[in-house]
Design a binder for these strands. Structure first.
Length: 293
RNA sequence: GGGGAGAUACCAAAGUGGCCAACUGGGGCAGACUGUAAAUCUGUUGUCUGAAGACUUCGUAGGUUCGAAUCCUGCUCUCCCCA
């Protein structure tokens, strides 16, 4: 067994999340440092160079993750910019080499906000690059989940099914199962870690806010249904105590628990797909894990 | 025994005649967080009510006043210093 593959992002999400501190130009995005006010220009070429240097197995194209809401005109212009940047990323990829041997796969990113025509056009553009995998971006930025699912159906009707389809930044356990049902293969998300740090736990019995007093004297395991030793060893009462007390260990246990929950969730999804029972399992599971415990 | 300080909501702690149902912090309750500038942020927290509003609170019993958490008197309790 080799080391697990790793990936890096391009900074396209920061074009969205740090919008207040950046300026967009054809050349790239200029970010202003919140630390010393200095300017930093990120271009498609530079972003590829940086990811070459880091050496991740999967690297991402530089894009603009559009905000929500976002009108059609803006979404169109943004998508076209992302497409031009993509051409430049691919150009740079082909004129440079991995620095540490092995191979680096560039995933282009579909944009188009919540507009079917744009999503379709973008998916076609992205697929035409014939990269080893394709990503879907610009979703889970505030739009209703149903809209996101609709966009996934449009996009995945175009992106090749025999290559990984990576939905960026998603999401809740339910989001993930719904996306899998619509053909998505890969995910990444801060939710299990950030929400875990903030006391939100995803368990086999539903969602719980471990800070709530109702867990103060509940000495049952964090998640008895878990396959993670951490989740089965520590009690809810103890974890709550740690989190309430501001102990770093609380955030650590909560994060490890959530991560293990996500991992076992997708592992089980894979098994259900293979034995042909994913559909019914998904319906039942989404219901169970979305409820407050 | 002598001298001094103090008792405010779950806790701590402001307020020292009307703008006080009472600052602020903690705690409680609830919510948010989705390609991580986030171990963060928001709301709420006397009772009744959907709300307007009404009602009862600042150790306790009286008093002064149009009006008292705030002023006066007695009582109870706590803390500190000296002996």
């Amino acid at each position: 067994m080799g080391a697990a593959p790793c990936s890096t992002d391009s900074g396209g999400y920061q074009v969205f999340s740090l919008a207040a501190n950046r300026k967009l130009t054809e050349e790239g995005a200029i970010f202003r440092s919140h630390i010393d006010g200095s300017k930093h220009l990120f271009t498609p070429e530079k972003v590829i160079d940086i990811q070459r240097e880091i050496g991740a197995d999967i690297i991402m194209a530089f894009d603009e993750c559009t905000p929500w809401p976002c009108d059609h005109k803006y979404a169109l212009g943004s998508m076209e910019l992302t497409h031009r940047w993509l051409d430049r990323c691919v150009g740079r990829l082909h004129t440079t080499e991995p620095l540490y041997g092995g191979d680096q796969m560039l995933f282009p990113i579909v944009q188009g906000a919540v507009y079917t025509d744009l999503r379709r056009a973008s998916a076609e553009k992205i697929a035409s690059k014939e990269m080893p995998g394709n990503a879907i971006g610009g979703l889970s930025v505030g739009e209703p989940a149903e809209v996101m699912y609709e966009m996934l159906e449009v996009v995945n009707g175009i992106l090749p099914a025999d290559k990984p389809r990576y939905l960026m930044g998603v999401g809740t356990p339910a989001n993930i199962l719904e996306a899998i049902a619509r053909g998505v293969d890969m995910f990444d998300c801060v939710m299990p870690s950030r929400n875990g740090r903030n006391g939100m736990l995803f368990t086999h019995d539903g969602i719980i806010n471990i800070r709530n007093q109702r867990w103060a004297s509940d000495f049952s395991p964090v998640d008895a249904g878990s396959d993670s030793e951490i989740s089965r060893t520590y009690s809810k009462a103890y974890l709550r105590h740690l989190v309430i007390s501001g102990e770093m260990l609380g955030a650590q246990i909560a994060t490890i628990h959530n991560l293990s929950f996500y991992l076992s969730l997708v592992r089980e999804a894979r098994e259900k797909i293979l034995d042909g029972t994913f559909g019914s399992w998904k319906e039942e599971t989404v219901r169970r894990i979305s409820e407050r415990a």
